[in-house]
Write a protein that binds this DNA or RNA. Structure first.
Length: 125
RNA sequence: ACAGUCCAGCGGACUGCCGCUGGUUUAAUUGCCUCGUGUGAUUAGACUGGAGGAAAGUCCGGACUCCAAAGAGCAGGAUGCUGGCUAACGGCCAGGCGGGGACAACCCGACGGAAAGUGCAACAGAGAGCAAACCGCCAACCCGACGUGAGCAUUCACGGCGGCGGUAAGGGUGAAACGGUGAGGUAAGAGCUCACCAGCAGUUUGGUGACAAACUGGCUCGGCAAACCCCAUCCGGAGCAAGACCAAACAGAGGAAGGUUUCGGCGAGUUCAUCGAGAAAUCGGUGGAGGUAACUGAACGAACGUCGGCUCGACGUCUCCCGGGUAGGUCGCUUGAGGUGAUUGGUAACAGUCAUCCCAGAUGAAUGGCAGUCUCUGCUCUUUCGAGAGCAAUGACAGAAUCCGGCUUACAGCUGUCCUGGCAAA
RNA sequence: GCGAAGAUGGUGGAAUUGGUAGACACGCUGGUCUCAGAAGCCAGUGCUGAGAGGCUUGGGGGUUCAAGUCCCCCUCUUCGCA
C-alpha cells in the first residue's frame, strides 16, 4: 500500500531553494503551480507544499494540504517520470470560492495539471 | 404550556480499509565508545495516546529564562465606589449608588477628587467664570428738551418722552445664563418671606465600609479630569525565535610542527704555538688554524595520488592544538496555582482534607482520506397527518506551537436546572 | 510563534491645544490659444440631490456642547526578531 514517509518530503529551506532556483520545469494551471526539478537524484519522488495565507485561514490551508498529499501518496508517487525528482506544489487563491469554501473538484484539477507535467517530463527524456 | 431571564453542559455518532505523528515494546541492519542485558540512527511488527470552547485576537495578569543585583529613589506607565477571593490581575464574588427593563426576574456602568492649583468652552449672544444688562418692566428724587395752562417775567404747575437710577420675573442667544413649583410681598421685582422638592453643611443612629435614615441650620455654591493635574494602590527590562549544551564546512586570528641544498654573517666545542699558576691532572690569558653544533641573513626547492608519452593544466587528498560559534542537532517540552468525585468551612467567589486518574507535543510543522449506515439541514413527492420515500449539500465559528488564570471577539444547532410575569393569544 | 507601526477625495500629503475637514502638489473634466497637438492661461473636481439640505477621515461603540484628533472593540496593510 502507498505510504508517505519523511524521505518523500522536502524538509528544509535548502530543498525548496534547490527546486525553485529557476532551473526546474514549471507548469501553471488555474488553481496550482507545479515545479519539478530537472535533474533526478536517487531515491523516491519528493513533495513540497506552498500554501500562502492569501489562500485562506488556517483551517482552509490545512485541508488543501491534506488533499494534495493524498493525491500524491495514492497516485503521483508511483509515476516513473517523477522518481528521484522533487516536486513543489503551490496553491493559488482561486482554490477558494467567494464564500470561503474549498473547491470540491480540487483533486480532479490537480490530476489533470500533474498529467501535463508528466507529459512534459516524458518529452524531456 | 407560553413569553422572558440567568446559569451550566454538548459542539455530529458508529463500522471497515489505507495513511501521518508521540510513547512503550519486540526484531533486523548499522554507528560510537567506557565493550555493557551500554547508548544512538534507520526499517518492520504489536499495543496505546493524538485539537478548541473559543486552540483566535494578543488586551491584561502570573510561572519560567536571560539581562550583575532586581533593594531604594526619579522619570514613565497602569488601575480607580466599598468589602472580600486569588500566585497575580484591568478578573471573579458579595454589597452600595446611578441608569435601563410591562420599572418583574434581571441587565449595564473608566463609578476617586472640580472647596489644592493651572487651563478649556468655536459660532451665536447684552453677558461664558470672583457674572452681565440688549429688548422689556418700574414709584419717588434730580437733569434735559418738547407740549398745554397761568403769568409783566429768566418763573410755576401738569403731561408724556429721554437720561440718571432700580430690577432680573418675562423675551431672545446658546450645549450650558448661578436652584425648581406655588403663595405672600413690591413701584417693578428678587430666598425678600413662607410651604414642599432638589442641593449644601453639621449632629445623631445603623453598618467593617461604600452609604442609608432621622433631625437641625444658614439660604445656594455650574460643566470638562477618556485636559494637565492631585490623592491612593501597583509596576525593573526583554521574551521559549527566552535560554542551555553538542557541533561539520568555508573564511579569519593565535600557537606548534614540517625539507634539504647553495652563498654569506657570527662563531661554542676542537686543534696548534706561547705565557702564567700548580707536585700533577688541569685551569686561565694572548695569538693563529679550522669553519663543525647552535643562532641568523639571502636564495632555491616545495608534499602525495589520478588523468596524460612529457611540460602546462585539471580533479581529489593536503599536519596538529586553542578559542569563537554558523549550517545542523539535542535539551528547554509538557505532572500542572492539573482534572474528576466525595466531604468540611464560607451567602458566594474560593479555600482545606481524602480518594482516584495521567489526558497532544509536532518543527516545511501530525491529528487525515475513501466507502457504508444513522443523525442534522434544505427541496420535491406520497400520506391513514403518526410518518414515509427520493434528491442535494456535507455540516456554525474555527486548527495547538513554552505553560497556566482571565478578558474580548466569532459561532449552525441541541439539552437541562433555578427564577420572573399574568400585558397579548390559548 | 513573539512584538511594533499605520489607514484622510482618483494619487501623494496637510489639518497647531478637541472648535468651519480636505491646505498644497499631481491627475482628471471643460474652456481659451492653434490648421492640429503639446506647453501656458482660466474655471471646475468626495458622494447624493433640481435645489435647500443630508452623508463622508478603514468599520462599530463610548467620553464631550462638539471627535480626523481622546478611550475601548473589530478589519486590513506594512515592518522587525533565530
Amino acid at each position: 500500500m502507498p505510504k508517505f514517509a519523511k524521505t518523500q518530503r522536502l524538509l528544509s529551506k535548502k530543498d525548496f531553494d534547490k527546486t525553485l532556483d529557476g532551473s526546474g520545469l514549471k507548469v501553471v494551471c488555474h488553481d496550482f503551480v507545479l515545479v519539478a526539478s530537472k535533474i533526478p537524484s536517487s531515491g523516491p519522488a519528493r513533495l513540497g507544499l506552498i500554501v500562502s495565507s492569501k489562500v485562506g485561514n488556517s483551517v482552509v490551508r490545512s485541508r488543501i494540504k491534506r488533499s494534495i498529499r493524498e493525491v500524491f501518496r495514492n497516485e503521483l508517487a508511483s509515476f516513473r517520470e517523477l522518481t528521484g525528482r522533487s516536486l513543489v506544489v503551490i496553491a493559488r487563491p482561486s482554490l477558494v470560492d467567494s464564500e470561503g469554501h474549498v473547491k470540491l473538484k480540487l483533486q480532479d484539477h490537480l490530476r489533470s495539471c500533474s498529467a501535463r507535467l508528466v507529459r512534459k517530463l516524458g518529452e524531456l527524456n
